[in-house]
Amino acid sequence: MERISQKLDDQLLHYLDGILAGTDKSDLEELLRKDNQLRIRLEELRKVNQMLAGKARLEHPSKVFTERVMSNLDHLPERSTMSPKNGLLLLCGIMVAIGALTLLLTLGVFDNMNSAISLEKMVVKNDLIKNPLPSIPFNAKWLINGILISTLGLAFVLLDRTVLRPLFEKRSRMQL
C-alpha cells in the first residue's frame, strides 16, 4: 500500500476546511477521482472532523459556581512558591554569606581555632563514673565547612524552587 505524501495529506485537510482553491483544488479533485487510496484517506480525515465537532461543546459548571466565587473573593489562593524576585534576593544573600565564609577559610582565619572540650573539667557529681572522661576535639574549620556545605545545599534548593522550577514550568507551558 502506497503511503500518501505529507503534502497531499495537508492538501486533503485544506480541502476539507474549504481553504483549497483554484488549480490546487481542481488538481486534487482530479487526483481523488483516480486514486482510491486518497479517497479513503479523505474519508478518514472527514470522520475525524465530524467526531471532533460532535464532541466539542461548551461545558457548564455547577449552579453554585458564581456564588462560591463571590463568597471566596477575599481568599486569594495561596502561591505555592516564593516569588522569583524574593527568591533571587535571598539566593544573593546566601551566596554573599558563602563567599565571605570561603574567603575567611582561605585566609586561614579558622586554622588556629582548635581546642578540645574536656569533659573531665565538668563538675559531675556521680560516684559511678570511675574512669577519666574523654575530651572531644573541636575544630572551627570543620564546623565552618559543615555550615558551608549545608548552606550550599540550601542555596541549591532555593535556586531550584525559585528560578529553575518556574523556568522549566514556563517552558513546558510554552510547549503545552
Binding site: L58, E59, H60, P61, F65, V69, M70, L73
Partner: peptide, 18 residues
C-alpha cells in the same frame, strides 16, 4: 462595587470551566 463581579463570573464561567 465588587458585587458586580458576579456578572463577569456569570458571563465567562462556562468558558473558564471548559
Amino acid at each position: 462595587e465588587r458585587e458586580l463581579y458576579a456578572r463577569l463570573v456569570d458571563t465567562y464561567k462556562s468558558y473558564a470551566y471548559t
